[in-house]
Amino acid sequence: MITLYRVLLATALLGLWYLGSATGVLSPLFFGRPEKIAAQVVEWFVTGEIWPHLAVTIAETLMAFASGTIGGVLAGLWLGLSPRSLAVLDPFIKAANAMPRVILAPIFAMWFGLGMGSKVALGFTLVFFIVFFNVLQGVREVSPVVLNGTRMLGANCVQLLRHVYLPAAMSWVFSSLHISVGMAFVGAVIAEYLGSASGVGYLILQAQGVFDVDAVFAGIAVLTACALMLDAIVTIAESRLLVWQPRADIPRDS
């Protein structure tokens, strides 16, 4: 039933858009035409023109996600376990996080060129802070009872880090996985859009340059589908990795 409503709603919206652009109420120059957008998407995939661009965008996303997560986990563990360093660095971290980081894209383009490096760098700055703050929180909220219990079982410092702090922090990292993967994607696309030689963001930039609004919308459609697929993969990974966490929908024995 819900699915039916969804289909009806989508059909209605697309239908209105189609009618509006066909009759000229919505200017096709600015709003595009749904049938032409669809044709553009099909053409990209049929000719295979889109694949190299999509591959570049996804590769940038994955690299930004991986580097941002590793960096965030390391920094979060370090500062979570060293209150003194955290106290010193706190204002700097706040400033760096408050800065609108998208504006760094031109600087990264100068530093790392127009290739993938500058895209990964922007995605890194977006992912890093999300993961960092989550790990920091995770380390601070480790149950003191679990910590003392593990110490009483004879765990040394390295074992505490490996078997208590890291798993506790990772549960917070996983809970923010949707946001950080999304941010890695956003970083990659925006950096492409601001200057690049390949990627879906680059396709959109090219299309905009020649006022091909249908191709701009087609690019947006491909990006949206891609983001939804990434999100679905994250959902699957999450349910595999967090089996130990209580879920509201599974009642426990009592």
Binding site: V145, V146, G149, V164, P167
Partner: peptide, 11 residues
């Protein structure tokens, strides 16, 4: 040490 609270590692 047997603690009053939950000392099991939840993961």
């Amino acid at each position: 040490y047997l603690f009053q609270g939950d000392s099991l590692m939840p993961w």
